[in-house]
Design a binder for these strands. Structure first.
Lengths: 165, 165
DNA sequence: GGCAGATCGATGACATGTCAACGAAAGCGT
DNA sequence: ACGCTTTCGTTGACATGTCATCGATCTGCC
């Protein structure tokens, strides 16, 4: 029962800064995206991931996996986007349970006209404010954290849960 | 007329890493917080900010301002927290429109018992994975971005909508 | 073949966040 | 004192995200 190791001044500064940046950056990017392209950030992410595939088609689960979304969330969101004509669903030939999400021409149009402005906003509010060394540091650090979180073994580090099969 | 300046490989790595970290870190911290303390992240943040004040009391607007929340959101959330006995509202003496959010003993108890575990989680999944130099870099970079976003003049930087496609 | 369990995607109930509007009360200039 | 405008916090309608569950289908194993 050691006293908890609180964050020291620098750590606290980093943590608070991260959370504040997160919030403000999100608000601003979402605001511009809505205003300029009529898309929400989730919309943009769906369209973006879809458009990165050869023919703009992906199994729903595969898309959910890439986006780190639950299938449920994606299914709900796709229904809304489908009503707006941005995507459609097709039956999957080799798996009758599955459905394939397909980018419509309107969806392709939407992402292609939104992308330049969005990238510019990301630059303006983040990337271009950083030195090259900071960009690299951010890349390195975030990927390390992601790898750590993606590793199921990480939770063994926690005090309590020790059980294993 | 310039083709949009897309992100180069390093910038893209940083940007994708950031978004992925954001999502995974959030999920994990929220998961542990709920499991260990029965609080959501928004709950924690409210209680945390309140507990940092001398007597656990703040004007609703002041709290909303600190948290970067809308008054509406905070009002809704407080209603839920109030029903769980974590906070109460009091009338404001010097401004009859206002209300003062007050941390209850139960709320104080909740944040005090949740904090050590939460800080430990933040360390385990983020801070302790970083070198001291990275912690400083993260602090510097996030604060720069925050300052930039907080500056109302920043939007003047946006290109005029004069360009035709 | 046929059964048991896993996976897929959809759905409804519910929790949470956003947005526009509101009544009440301050501020402010006259 | 008087209006006009702004600010405060609340509210209701609605958009979005989560969670548990479902029927359908696939998979592996006998």
């Amino acid at each position: 029962m050691d006293g908890p190791r609180w964050l020291d001044e620098r750590e606290d500064r980093a943590w608070r800064g991260y959370r504040r940046m997160r919030r403000l950056l999100d608000l601003e990017l979402a605001r511009e995206l809505t205003q300029d392209a009529g898309l929400s950030e989730p919309d943009y992410d769906v369209l973006s991931d879809l458009s990165e595939t050869p023919r703009g088609r992906l199994r729903l689960s595969e898309l959910a996996h890439r986006m780190l979304w639950s299938r449920s969330r994606l299914s709900h969101h796709l229904s809304r986007m489908q009503q707006r004509g941005l995507v459609t669903r097709e039956e999957c030939a080799d798996d009758a349970r599955g459905s394939i999400v397909v980018l419509t021409p309107a969806g392709r149009q939407a992402i292609e006209s939104a992308a330049p402005g969005h990238v510019a906003a990301v630059r303006r509010h983040l990337i271009d404010l950083l030195t090259p060394a900071e960009v690299d540091a951010l890349g390195a650090l975030t990927h390390r954290v992601v790898d750590h979180l993606a590793d199921p073994g990480l939770r063994a580090t926690r005090p309590q849960p020790a059980a294993e099969a």
